[in-house]
Write a protein that binds this DNA or RNA. Structure first.
Lengths: 217, 217
DNA sequence: TTAATTTGTTAGAAGCATCTAACATTTTAA
DNA sequence: TTAAAATGTTAGATGCTTCTAACAAATTAA
């Protein structure tokens, strides 16, 4: 296990490289709210530790070792969130910041007990999959809402951003996990999506929002 | 709130200054496993922040502000321990290291909910009092076992050391919170104490151990 | 295809918590 | 009451993570 800072870098690299397998220094700097040279020197350090593969002016990729570390942190974060919601009965939009701290707790005993109390759950309160002890993720074939064709009805499975502002935004639109929605129109121009839910209300989501919502057909 | 390091210094100062109201640099260094100059510079820092009052070659004392901070951390530590034992059903001897990490979690929501789930407890699993939100400690007139006279029967209330090795030691001697013991003999020479428990077994405790066990007559 | 823009790097400094080595003060014991 | 021992301080260095300023490479647009 590395330092708290290293853990945060690795977690962010994992999140941001999900789509293409790599991240750019500038994306990471933005996400972590640090300047480029900070990312640069941390990449040298994580490179030396074999957590990332990194060459100057090239994208950053996690090694197998780095991925394992990332999955361990993500497991703890998601178990913590589910624990806070299910056992401690806090709201799903308020648990992120607490889980952000709990994910760095170093104790197998603690996390295995949480896992047990929750009966070995597969997904967190946002619908995101929880890696098991070995880093294995429940395999599914979900797609982002932004990738669904017009006229197709889908079920909301998960959201890939658990910041309060985002969740409040979804709550205000009446969007919840498990709900079915029909993709009525997709604007080619800006990627925004118009949905109809079961109460026949139309609502518009920007591309930015739609790509953070995971659905299944 | 200060840094994690500052919090640990303040907590240790509080614990070590319980008896006399002050601590020496060397005691603190030993407890925190750092060298004297590290303590020295941290005292300058905490002095500047008005958390401790400190003059060169003199003892270290917490200010009112420092005490408030200490009690807030102790509250979180003890609530965490009780939560881990009562709600998560972990053993009292294994929760210390986890609580040591949880005590630094910054979330009123989290700790107030724990307090609520435990029904606003007054003491932790070791019998130590839990300060309330305002830092108030349940007032009692307990004494250390090392201060009990020969022939007196007392009830064990608390232990003031929650490290695994200490608790294992007590468990192995068959000593538990709530139990009654008779102080059969006190050695003037080394301060050791011979006890008889209800099953009439004699057992000897060193002074070092006896002074960490709190009892009431 | 050159110039402008965006993106990334290096060098050097700063704050934090720690250390070792050298020195100072206070306490204890001869 | 002086010498020895114990305790505390200062100075200066190190590793960690961050920063600004200056420079370099890659991409984009004229």
């Amino acid at each position: 296990m590395g330092s708290l800072t290293e853990e945060n870098y690795i977690k962010s690299i994992y999140a941001l490289s999900q789509a293409t397998g790599e991240v750019f220094v500038s994306e990471l700097a933005k996400k972590l709210a640090v300047k480029l040279p900070s990312v640069n020197s941390m990449m040298k350090k994580l490179g030396a530790k074999k957590m990332v593969s990194y060459a100057p002016y090239k994208g950053i990729r996690l090694t197998e070792k780095g991925k394992k570390e990332a999955l361990s942190i993500i497991r703890k974060h998601r178990l913590a969130e589910l624990f806070l919601v299910k056992i401690m009965e806090l709201g799903w939009e308020e648990v992120h910041d607490i889980a952000e701290q709990l994910e760095h707790v170093d104790s197998n005993r603690f996390y295995n007990r949480i896992d047990e109390m929750l009966n070995y759950p597969k997904v967190d309160p946002h619908g995101e999959p929880i890696p098991d002890i070995n880093g294995k993720i429940f395999n599914d074939k979900r797609i982002p809402l932004s990738g669904v064709n017009e006229g197709v009805t889908v079920r909301i499975l998960a959201v890939s951003d658990d910041k309060k502002s985002f969740l409040d935004h979804l709550n205000s639109k009446g969007l919840f996990i498990g709900e079915k929605v029909l993709v009525k129109r997709k604007e080619v121009y800006d990627g925004s999506v118009v949905l109809t839910n079961k109460s026949k209300t139309d609502l518009m989501l920007t591309h930015q929002v739609a790509e953070r919502i995971w659905v299944e057909v």
